[in-house]
Design a protein around this nucleic acid. Structure first.
Lengths: 232, 232
DNA sequence: CATGCCAATATTGTCGACAATATCCCGTTT
DNA sequence: AAACGGGATATTGTCGACAATATTGGCATG
């Protein structure tokens, strides 16, 4: 599995050193190199990434924004922990917001964008790596699909909340629980149904399908969380 | 009109000096002392609030989070501008999220909380100040109602997104457009219907009513925006 | 006169040091 | 032995200065 994940979704490329360290720490938390619940040492991380504490603290502020850490004044920051309740809460929001994104995308997505997304889906399914079950590429493909629809909504706040805030946490749950099971082919079918609804400009249906899709995904992860808990 | 607005909604009281300057600048932007589109001078604001640039920049990071300013790397920050498109986008999100909040509140709100909220509504309607049309108290009362329902959802992300991020902008639209018109009594009826639905544990209905309520509010503000544009 | 370039200026980003606060450890007390 | 208290330590918050980047104004050129 390829461990470097190119976040092509970051709207603006990292220009300042706070941006760079943010990307690094985001990745470290999502992939678990900084364990859930771990205390974050400002001086430690600053040294590790060869920056001073100022840009690191700027990065921490944004990490809090995307719910990857929790800060308490004068006491410091900890990496968030993954819980069943948190997952449910997160996916409840996703259902609402991505449902809305589908309705808007059905109105606003250009025909060419729709074609391109449909093609990307096919291409992704046929890809060697996906069939071999590399979870990294499954994850990237899924996120890509959702991002394109969200961006097509052209609602600034929606895009911001989903892509810049919530999705890092979504990926964290998936990566750390190793979600690479047999749901891939079913998810593909669901994706296809959604893009079809959008192509038909049927926002209501796309909304409904997306909600179901996310709900199914949630149940899948909840099951895994349950199993993990029983094992431990 | 009382110009000081006690933000009783801030979950944790400001403890650090960055917290304090954040509250001050938030208020300044929402109430228009820092005009929409105005450039933000870090050194200027820092002097004005008698702090160094470090805590001020911390505050700016959080102001960006609640969409009150827009930053561009190496170039600085500007106060956001109020536009019809932005308002529509904002209220689309509100409809979805507050609808969800209603569904959850219908499940989770304690009977005593419901009673208290109903009483607060009555009390608010009968209040001298409200009948005299002091927009400040109308605004506070409305926000209070919505906040209580949102908090009752007990969904951490929902609460965070609405109360800590979006609502400052909502208030900014309302305050700066001087929304103190005759919608107050109608809004009261709508509030009452919503709390009734919640009391009956009818989440579906509460959801629907809240969406309509927010939609009506949006149209009201859009009208005002239109009028203002024609005048100018 | 408009336009493009370059230096001077102003503003933002980063750094290291200090102050304020929390955390830890250990001795004392009941 | 457990609970409390107080000092030592570590960590966070804030400050002023410097470096890096944008912006401004004037000068030369077409």
């Amino acid at each position: 599995m390829n461990s470097t994940y190119d976040p092509q979704y970051n709207l603006r490329s990292p220009v300042t050193s706070a941006d760079r360290v943010l990307v690094s720490v985001q990745q470290a938390i999502v992939e678990g190199q900084l364990a859930p619940g771990a205390k974050i040492s400002e001086t430690g991380l600053a040294k590790q990434f060869n920056v001073s504490r100022a840009p690191l603290r700027e990065a921490l502020a944004r990490l809090e924004r995307c719910h990857l850490i929790e800060r308490t004044p004068n006491a410091g920051a900890r990496v968030v922990t993954l819980t069943a309740d948190g997952l449910t809460a997160l996916y409840q929001i996703r259902e609402e917001l991505e449902g809305l994104a589908c309705r808007l995308a059905a109105e606003r997505m250009a025909d060419e964008e729709i074609d391109a997304l449909a093609k990307l889906l096919e291409q992704h399914l046929n890809s060697q790596r996906v069939r071999e079950g590399e979870s990294y590429y499954q994850e990237a493909g899924d996120v890509d699909f959702h991002y394109r629809i969200i961006l097509a909504s052209k609602n600034q706040y929606l895009i911001n909340m989903l892509c810049d805030e919530l999705y890092f946490l979504v990926r964290m749950y998936r990566v750390q629980l190793g979600m690479n099971g047999p749901r891939v082919s079913r998810a593909f079918d669901e994706h296809k149904a959604i893009i079809n609804a959008i192509a038909n400009r049927d926002g209501e249906l796309a909304d409904l399908l997306m909600r179901r899709h996310i709900s199914a995904s949630r149940k899948n992860i909840e099951k895994k969380l349950q199993v993990d808990k029983e094992v431990s």
